[in-house]
């Protein structure tokens, strides 16, 4: 439950060696194009291409990829249902006014709008998951330094990154011990166990952090981390692929302007 992060998958994916900027441009470019499009087709096109890239180029297991979509899907379905019921316009198929200030209706325009938002979420999520699965955060730190983001933020980011794993070890051990002792057998029990778990983890992390600063002081830490590392070279084939993907997607965005479902 607690052990698996996208980070572990990202460390081992087959696109790891591709230049970080290229992957970021592909991902953020796709997000922007999804937002700028006015039809449901471009987001679906982007989702299709990026899913292909994730499954076949990066070699991510299809089951893992599918599971990542579950949570956003439930949220999207709920929220899109609200959008469809609230907005109106076009041909009215069904309508109901339970209160004077509220009118729920199912119209052609509202279905178009809801479906469009739903597709945009799928497109955006696939672009986000593409970045998450192909780019380990370590590579992002180098990018952050090169982009001259204030040092205080970069340092804090790296320490938070480090402490996530520090806290995680403690958490998994304690959680397993509680689980073996039936600590989560009822709701009341679960709340009590969960609070004890978090409390003990907070305290042990605090201790670990104090040890951490002492160890760093002993190594002449002056308030600044030095990040070594260089971004990988920009190679021809990935550059052409990313360029082609963004160009074709932009063309799709332009060509499908205003195309609606119904």
């Amino acid at each position: 439950m607690y052990e698996e992060f996208l980070e572990d998958i990202a460390q081992a994916n087959r696109l790891r060696e591709v230049n970080t900027y290229l992957k970021l441009i592909a991902g953020t470019g796709a997000i922007l194009l999804c937002l700028l499009s006015s039809s449901y087709i471009p987001p679906l096109f982007i989702a299709l291409v990026l899913s292909g890239a994730i499954l076949f180029l990066a070699g991510i297991d299809a089951k893992t990829y599918g599971e990542l979509f579950l949570v956003p899907f439930t949220f999207a379905v709920m929220s899109v249902a609200v959008i469809i019921l609230l907005s109106g316009g076009g041909e009215v198929y069904w309508s109901w006014s339970p209160f004077p200030w509220l009118s729920l209706s199912l119209t052609s325009d509202s279905i178009n709008k809801g479906f469009f938002v739903f597709c945009r979420v799928i497109g955006g999520m696939s672009a986000l998951i593409f970045i998450a699965l192909t780019t380990p955060l370590i590579d992002l730190f180098i990018v952050m330094k090169q982009c001259r983001i204030p040092e205080a933020i970069v340092d804090l980011t790296m320490i938070i990154y480090r402490s996530i794993f520090m806290v995680m070890d403690q958490l998994v051990q304690t959680y397993r011990a509680q689980l073996m002792r039936l600590g989560y057998s009822s709701l009341r029990e679960s709340i009590q166990s969960f609070a004890t778990l978090c409390g003990s983890v907070f305290i042990s992390s605090w201790d670990a952090a104090e040890d951490f600063i002492r160890a760093m002081d002993a190594r002449c830490y002056s308030g600044k981390f030095v990040v070594f590392g260089e971004t990988r070279p920009v190679e021809a084939v990935p550059t052409i692929l990313v360029g082609a993907f963004l160009a074709v997607s932009s063309l799709v965005v332009i060509a499908t302007q205003g195309v609606a479902l119904i």
Binding site: Y2, S163, M166, L171, I191, F194, S205, A209, I213
Partner: peptide
């Protein structure tokens, strides 16, 4: 207070972990 840096880091890590935990499902 320079010692605050790792403490801020732990707080961040803690918030992250807390929000990636699923609460006893209500």
């Amino acid at each position: 207070d320079r010692e605050a840096l790792p403490l801020l880091g732990v707080t961040g890590g803690f918030i992250f972990i807390l929000s990636s935990l699923k609460l006893p499902s209500v």
